[in-house]
Amino acid sequence: MKSIHRRALMAAAPALVAVPAAPVATAHPDAELLRLCAEHQVAQAAYERDGGRLEPEECPLAIAYLGSVRAIGGAEAHTLAGMLAKARAAKREALMPDGSEQPHSCVAADWAWDLLNDLLRLAGEA
């Protein structure tokens, strides 16, 4: 098998850019939920680390964190990957500073109920 040299590849680069891209595969059904859960983890960590100095309405960290809470609460999972992302976010919400978990004292309980409904809907039972 003949290898392609770097110079030959660089010389061909302008022609490769001119070739239309192949159609992109359909986006993951839970792409938005996966993104929201990843952003929530960052927002929650930032708020816990540096937040609480201002009233929530004035704190940009609180605004970002609470916005992500609302967005996740309004999102339905369509795949196991989406359900796992939401479950991990709920578990993180329930984690207390001492390492215990208190799911009944936070949004985790609501998200757990959402997950139950997602599971039933995906099974065709809702």
Rank of each mutant, 00 (worst) to 15 (best):
A87H: 10
H78Y: 00
M10H: 10
I72S: 03
G51A: 03
G124R: 10
L36M: 04
H104C: 05
M96T: 07
R92C: 09
R70S: 09
L120H: 05
D50P: 04
D118C: 08
V107P: 00
R88C: 10
V69H: 03
A89F: 07
A71W: 01
E48A: 03
R70D: 09
M1R: 15
R6P: 12
R92P: 01
Y65F: 08
R121Q: 07
R70M: 07
R7N: 14
A108Q: 07
H104V: 05
L33V: 06
Q41F: 08
E101C: 04
E32C: 01
A75F: 02
A81G: 03
L33M: 11
P29M: 11
A38D: 11
W113Q: 11
R53N: 05
A123C: 06
A81T: 02
L9P: 09
D118Y: 05
K2Y: 05
G74S: 03
L95C: 09
V24N: 11
P20C: 13
L54S: 02
T79V: 03
P103V: 12
L95F: 02
W113H: 11
A12T: 01
L115P: 04
P103Y: 13
A126C: 02
R6S: 15
R70E: 10
A15I: 15
A45S: 07
I72T: 06
E93M: 14
W111E: 01
A31Q: 13
R53D: 04
E125R: 09
E48L: 05
A45D: 08
K2H: 10
N117L: 07
P103T: 13
E93P: 03
I63P: 01
A85P: 02
V107I: 09
R35S: 13
K91M: 04
P29T: 08
A112L: 06
H5D: 15
P56I: 01
C37L: 12
G99D: 06
A77R: 02
P20L: 14
G51E: 01
N117E: 12
E48M: 05
E39M: 06
P29L: 10
E125S: 05
A15T: 15
I63Y: 02
H40N: 04
A21R: 06
Q102M: 07
K86W: 07
R7L: 14
G52R: 06
A43W: 02
G51K: 04
E58Q: 13
A87P: 04
A25N: 15
L80M: 09
A8V: 12
A123Q: 11
R121S: 10
V24K: 14
L120W: 01
L61F: 01
A123D: 10
R121C: 05
A8M: 13
G52T: 06
H28S: 12
A62P: 02
C37H: 12
E57L: 01
R92F: 11
Q44G: 02
L34C: 08
N117A: 09
A21N: 04
P103W: 13
L9R: 15
A18D: 14
R35T: 13
R88H: 12
I72C: 09
G82M: 00
A126G: 09
C59D: 12
G51R: 04
R70P: 00
G51W: 02
A11D: 12
K91L: 08
I4P: 04
R6Q: 15
P103S: 12
S100N: 08
A64K: 09
A8N: 14
E125L: 10
E76V: 00
M96H: 06
V69S: 00
Y65Q: 05
V69E: 08
P97V: 01
P23E: 15
